[in-house]
Design a protein around this nucleic acid. Structure first.
Lengths: 230, 230
DNA sequence: CCCGCGCAAGAGCACTGCTCTCATTTCGGT
DNA sequence: ACCGAAATGAGAGCAGTGCTCTTGCGCGGG
């Protein structure tokens, strides 16, 4: 992490950022399927082959966008945790605050959200770089529940049934150390159900059905929090 | 609905079916993004332009596959309802039966499932033909809850909060006539959360996290059913 | 100062969806 | 039975795509 970087490297970073910005714009405008390297290059006034100096393939560009999107979403979730309104509030309010922040980001960036939680792209398998940023939202939720546990205000979650005992223990150890296995299992469930609600809204399944989306989601998020023991 | 149809019409149906079959195979093998009209035509020994006599565009082919997939999934859900094991059983067992059938179909046909519940394709907006088949799973779930309501074994769902009163009433009238507004709202929630669970499994979010998937899902589905009043 | 490496440009390959034209086949009404 | 019309297939062609390879230019670091 040298402070001084050659002008060359600086220029490279600027071009890289410009490419990602333009790609993000096309993503927002047309969706991932229509993201064209040539179109990005054209818009930036360069020739398509030049773009390959910065990203070795279209998939690599997509991966970069995915990592950025995971980080943006994770940052939004963490910001909701740090918000002054959440500081003094009860744990359930902090939980729903995180949920609403995640939903708000998803609604504001539907195509990027689709990149993260929609159909996986063709032969693409998430490289290692994505797992860290990808887990930030989950960790934020875990954090809320852990805080409730630490000050004793959490209601206990049901013990996992026999076939899930070991599984729950392992999950708790890996993803939510310090939480009882039952809570870890419930968190996993509520986590995926939360994104079920958001995906249905973003992907249009609620069109012509749900109109009061904020209220509908807020109530659902609160119920998920209650189920998670808050 | 004439019983006798010319040999021409018959041949047309056969070719149409063959195209869809081959398209489905490519879908299963490579994913929707790589579904190529030319490749389908090539595999069928015809020239690409001939294919346009059967489907006016690639999107129309996709739509046909989507409708078929919705119907297959809906049929699986309804079959679970009609299964002998479900006949005498309690309502919760029938609920989880439907859920498990939906999940099983999704796991067995991941790419077709992604077509239905993944990111919407580029500029594609679901035509009217899809809404009927698309609602079959939802209607099956509504049916289970309605049956429980009719024989008085359903636990009442909480009244919707003020801002959702009218919304819930409208939804109940449109989608679940005869059910109280609170139940309709809860059903909408559990419906989307059910697909959240399935999508996370099919789209790989549970990779390296959940291994006992059947048991995990079964418990989650049962809890959703309980929340729906069963 | 000056040479090398980073970079851009361009041509080219193998694809894609889709359109148009032209020949052939087959159906339905007289 | 015939003949026009409609349905179907074949082929060429257009504009676009991701990606590779080769060729040169010019800036930056030794």
């Amino acid at each position: 992490m040298e402070k001084i970087r050659g002008a060359r490297a600086r220029a490279r970073d600027e071009v890289t950022a410009a490419i990602k910005d333009e790609a993000r714009r096309q993503l927002a405008a047309e969706g991932a399927a229509k993201l064209s390297l040539r179109a990005v290059a054209r818009e930036l006034g360069m020739v398509s082959s030049a773009l390959y100096r910065y990203f070795p393939s279209r998939d690599e560009l997509l991966t970069a966008l995915i990592v950025d999107a995971y980080n943006a979403l994770g940052a939004a979730a963490e910001a909701a945790l740090a918000a002054p309104a959440a500081e003094g509030g009860d744990h359930l309010a902090r939980w729903t605050g995180v949920c609403r922040a995640v939903r708000a980001w998803a609604v504001a960036h539907p195509h990027e959200y689709a990149l993260l939680y929609g159909s996986p792209v063709p032969g693409y398998h998430a490289p290692r770089d994505t797992v860290g940023p990808a887990s930030r939202v989950g960790l934020a939720l875990v954090g809320v529940v852990r805080a409730a546990h630490d000050d004793g205000s959490a209601r206990p979650c049901p013990e996992p049934p026999g076939e899930l005992r070991d599984e729950a223990r392992r999950i708790a150890a890996e993803l939510a150390p310090g939480l009882p296995p039952g809570s870890a299992l419930v968190l996993l469930r509520t986590w995926s159900q939360l994104f079920g609600l958001i995906s249905f809204e973003v992907f249009g399944q609620f069109d012509r059905i749900v109109t009061e989306r904020e209220a509908f989601f807020a109530e659902a998020a609160a119920r998920l929090g209650r189920e998670a023991g808050l």
